[in-house]
């Protein structure tokens, strides 16, 4: 019985390691990245579905302005990129990828809004390491994770999921991806979803 329990435990440990993050982070962040180790892939329950009217939110942006999702209605498609936290491995390498495909967003009349639950000073320091970002970065710090919670992507430990939403010009949710928090969603998935808006 004890042997069986040990084997079960070892099995679970190895499976947890298998599910874990295995990536290369950029040398641009030097040794500043905090690696929390493998996390539970997802830890929340969506409150919205494709086809729903998107909930609205208003959040402070790094630029000093306040941005409401509804301000883009009728004008631009919106991609929301929730990433779990600043200064963590996968997140630090996700937005720099989006940063070099601005023409793809423009082609599909879309704006990208990057959102984390970090406060503005942390976001300021973190995003400076990424170079100049063409898209607004929003802080969902206070009330803590309120925007993430509206979409159902706030995890039980207060960080958000690694989630992408596409909201069309009519304010309707057209795409949802709540990806394994330990991994980076392939770029082609997002681009394909943008192409399907046309």
């Amino acid at each position: 019985m004890k042997k069986a329990a040990f084997i079960n435990l070892a099995f679970l440990i190895l499976l947890a390691a298998a599910a874990g993050w295995g990536g290369a982070h950029s040398g641009a962040f030097s040794d500043k990245i905090y690696d929390p180790g493998p996390l539970k892939p997802t830890d929340s329950k969506l409150r919205v579905a494709v086809g729903d009217k998107s909930p609205d939110f208003k959040l402070p942006a790094l630029s000093g302005t306040t941005i409401a999702l509804s301000q883009y209605q009728g004008e631009r498609n919106v991609v929301l990129s929730f990433v779990p936290a600043a200064w963590t491995p996968v997140c630090s390498d996700q937005w720099p990828g989006y940063n070099i495909i601005e023409p793809v967003f423009r082609e599909h009349e879309a704006i990208l809004l990057g959102i984390t639950v970090d406060n503005l000073p942390s976001l300021h320091a973190w995003t400076r390491e990424m170079g100049r970002l063409w898209f607004p970065v929003l802080s969902d710090f206070w009330p803590h994770g309120a925007a993430a919670e509206k979409f159902g992507v706030l995890r039980s430990d207060g960080i958000s999921e690694r989630a992408l939403f596409i909201i069309d010009k009519k304010g309707i949710i057209r795409y949802i991806s709540v990806y394994n928090i330990n991994k980076r969603p392939p770029l082609e998935n997002l681009v394909k979803a943008l192409e399907e808006l046309d």
Binding site: A24, H25, S26, G27, A28, D93, Q94, P96, G97, N99, I100, E129, M130, G131, R184, L187
Partner: peptide
Amino acid sequence: EIFSMYCPHCQR
């Protein structure tokens, strides 16, 4: 060169 499309240092 080991690079990544997502790496700002590689991009620069």
